[in-house]
């Protein structure tokens, strides 16, 4: 992982995943499921996109590669020297018979921050993916900043999932009964696996709870399950997403 020499400058900087995992197809002769996944850890312990920053991460799991990427700590969006939004763009590419587990720590939207985040995923038709996104709106007893986040997944060139969320002032109704209704932790877990027989009926997690709930359900455009969860705290959110993953894997 390299740091830009001037990460606070409002110019385009590029953070690379570890060299072993970045833009280097791993061509082992064995099928992907027999490999031990290569593990990449993003060692930015103190990643703090400020107003005006532009961060881009590109990760490619080449054909038949198996790759897992995590981050060492949460990403914290903070108020910067300008009111212009910071941008944080993640681009993931997964080749034929390749597998990517993209499991970063949560993103925290701190008071007065302004961040536009995108995660764009291109999957080959035989690619497998496990992706988790968690967003925490404000630190303890703090109003969140403005966070606009888009998750766009293509599989074999067709759209599989396209969702944009927008939280924090000045978004209309973001904390109201149609969108978050007071919840401060929100997340998704996406599992794409052409080899798995996907369960067809949705699973409701804690449907009568006022302390967070989730749903796990199949997507229309491919062998994919998506869990969507809202919770009052990050720990409850993680519990819900872990529970959803257990169901998704049929355990």
């Amino acid at each position: 992982m390299r740091h830009s020499p001037h990460p606070r400058q409002p110019q385009r900087t590029r953070h690379h995943a570890p060299a072993a995992t970045q833009r280097r197809p791993v061509p082992p002769p064995t099928p992907a499921h027999r490999q031990k996944p290569r593990q990449g850890r993003d060692h930015r312990r103190d990643e703090r996109p400020l107003g005006g920053d532009r961060l881009t991460i590109d990760v490619t799991a080449g054909d038949r590669a198996a790759l897992e990427v995590t981050t060492a700590a949460a990403t914290l969006a903070l108020r910067g020297p300008t009111t212009a939004p910071a941008t944080y763009d993640v681009r993931l590419t997964v080749g034929e018979h390749a597998s990517l587990r993209w499991l970063p720590q949560p993103l925290i939207s701190a008071a007065d921050s302004n961040l536009r985040q995108t995660c764009t995923v291109e999957l080959a038709s035989t690619a497998r993916l496990l992706l988790r996104e968690e967003q925490l709106l404000g630190r303890a007893n703090e109003d969140p900043g403005h966070l606009v986040s888009r998750l766009l997944v293509h599989r074999a060139g067709r759209p599989l999932l396209d969702q944009q969320t927008a939280y924090g002032d000045p978004e209309p109704g973001w904390d109201g009964p149609a969108i978050l209704h007071g919840h401060r932790a929100v997340g998704q877990l996406l599992l794409v696996d052409p080899q798995m027989s996907m369960r067809r009926s949705p699973i409701l997690l804690r449907p009568r709870s006022r302390e967070g709930c989730a749903v796990l359900a199949p997507l229309a455009g491919g062998p994919a399950l998506l869990a969507t969860a809202v919770a009052p705290t990050s720990s409850t959110l993680r519990e819900l997403l872990d529970e959803a993953l257990t169901h998704a894997l049929g355990q």
Partner: peptide, 19 residues
């Protein structure tokens, strides 16, 4: 192309819609 169209969504409407 269609990726230029809005994809604004609400987590709670998706969850309560299934419920």
């Amino acid at each position: 192309g269609v990726d230029a169209l809005p994809s604004a969504s609400s987590p709670l409407l998706d969850i309560t819609g299934e419920q």
